[in-house]
Write a protein that binds this DNA or RNA. Structure first.
Lengths: 95, 95
DNA sequence: TTTTCGATGATCAAGAATGATATCGCCCTG
DNA sequence: CAGGGCGATATCATTCTTGATCATCGAAAA
């Protein structure tokens, strides 16, 4: 599924055309991005939660130079699926 | 950020009221859930990708009974943040 | 069509997550 | 507001990811 597919689903659900539906989907994504950029946790019951956490510290590896390098401070995003999503998955047919 | 906050953002962006905006947000989430339930990967450029992958195999622990147990087959969902989201995060002020 | 993101893979060591089940305080949401 | 999801926590052994950089190629998206 890609952004356009979601817009298609919104198009079917509303009286908006594809372009407007796409714009709305982008609005949703933008809201999420903005919250996360502000380190704000995002929690959607049933779907899941996104949380900004610190990067690991210590060392990483620069493969090109075969050397260890120090990992700078930073943040990353963790997603944790919600209950409902997990349940839907466990009920779906095995792949 | 919670579902209602996203609906608020959509309300501001459209001529829909809160209830309809909320319904649209739910439509977006429903589309995502449906795709994932069907084991379909979801890729949104810049935001990130969700992918259904097999659960780890081997053993888990039943704490109540202080015993190891075998982990049944299953699926879980992995999220991988997109480039843009990572970049926004690294540019945001340290917390 | 063009741009560029994203998946994959390579290395290595450290550390986080995963799985299982249950409790409890907080809080999302119908 | 009430119901129940969510997250932290507990255990233990194992699995997996994380981080760094970069090349390749398929595909998202403008």
């Amino acid at each position: 599924m890609i952004k356009n597919d979601i817009a298609l689903a919104i198009e079917k659900k509303t009286e908006y055309n594809r372009a407007r539906s796409l714009s709305i989907v982008e609005g949703v994504l933008e809201a999420l991005k903005s919250a996360l950029t502000n380190k704000e946790k995002v929690e959607i019951r049933g779907f899941g939660s996104f949380k900004v956490v610190p990067k690991k510290t210590g060392f990483g590896r620069d493969i090109r130079r075969q050397k260890q390098i120090r990992i700078e401070k930073g943040q990353r995003i963790k997603f944790r699926p919600g209950q409902e999503l997990k349940t839907l998955l466990s009920k779906a047919k095995p792949s």
